[in-house]
Design a protein around this nucleic acid. Sequence first.
DNA 1: TTAATAGTGTCTTTGAGACATTATAAA
DNA 2: TTTATAATGTCTCAAAGACACTATTAA
Lengths: 225, 225
Amino acid sequence: MYSPSDFPPFAVTVDLVVLTVRSDALCALLVRRGEAPYRGRWALPGGFVREFESVDDAAARELVEETGVAGLHLEQLATYGEPRRDPRMRVVSVAYLALAPDLPVPVAGTDAAAASWVPVEDVGALAFDHARILADGVERARAKLEYTALGTEFCGPEFTVAELRRVYEIVWGVSLDPRNFHRKVTGVEGLLEATGESTARDGGRPAALYRRGGASVLYPPLVRG
Amino acid sequence: MYSPSDFPPFAVTVDLVVLTVRSDALCALLVRRGEAPYRGRWALPGGFVREFESVDDAAARELVEETGVAGLHLEQLATYGEPRRDPRMRVVSVAYLALAPDLPVPVAGTDAAAASWVPVEDVGALAFDHARILADGVERARAKLEYTALGTEFCGPEFTVAELRRVYEIVWGVSLDPRNFHRKVTGVEGLLEATGESTARDGGRPAALYRRGGASVLYPPLVRG
DNA sequence: TTAATAGTGTCTTTGAGACATTATAAA
DNA sequence: TTTATAATGTCTCAAAGACACTATTAA
């Protein structure tokens, strides 16, 4: 049997990579730290896991606290457990990836001085090993757009094919043929559900509006150009 | 700043999903528990992360202890952190996936009564939430065979195309056309490296022997039949 | 009208899957 | 010889990519 002397005590935290597409850029939600260590540095939002709370629940709780929105896609990314990643104690962090539509404005957290959407290309040094975690989250998001319907998570409840295409172009940093993209996404069973409405918000011929369909995997996949 | 009263103490463990292909079955390395809780139950090998050791290093150390072999492929799978997954204390477990060739025989661990390769189809109830972890590991392995060169990790240092095909057939539980499979794997750049040798160990015309090539991703991917 | 974007159709190429055929060993 | 397995080749179909063309709005 184990006794308390058998194992060293760890603190367990969750860190969130929250991504959105806004202003033609893939952006991450960052908070400016108000406390040492790394006071004043940008960091990923996150916090300690509570005693009677699952790690997944802690991530969901932090996500609602930081964004003010419930029901966003949230998945576990990886766990980071280098001995000295936090300078003063042994902290193991479980990182999560969340994808959000273009939300109004981040809610400043209780112990964070400020919160902001920062284009991932412009992110400089971050606290702890958060730059590495963010990079892993961005790569995961890029990869999952290929074979899942996650691209629609970046859009609002109703969107046009062109808006969905812009998501892919911005996340992947490529340009996609509008005609082939249209044929592709409207051809995948269950990906899009027509609302019957249309909009001319981008000028030109009005575009049909769609909702997310029930499909979660994309077969055949979209391939990064 | 945080003080010890700010966070509840957790124990952190690593659990290993070690898979191999032997006797025409995908098998997992399991240990029979010699201690409570779940004494006598099969469980995944694993153990506590030490105080000055990274979580990744703990997994690598446990893998060598359990298999007696170094240099196996090891990747993080997921982290399991339900509050009551261990009946007596708060334990967060970071699970890892390892793929091994057909090793001689498992080494009985220090605190495990016995170790054995068990076909994943025959695995019954396991200790803790290990059945769930094992299922996640098997699914990850199956998925990664599609678009990575991981199938070769199940083979010895030199292998034939037919032996590699048997790996895919057993892991996926499908049968694959030998001719199309041969054309496919020999066509992917950097996947296989011819040794110039051949063997007739399966009877019939001798088959060319290959080594793993440098490629780690498969493009285009192999698709599950 | 022109300009802008939405949506459809057509052609070519690539690759997967089905399957015939030839090659090289052992019994 | 027969039998078993290895390796190559051929045909068909599905889907990606390139790109022409038509449709519907606003200015």
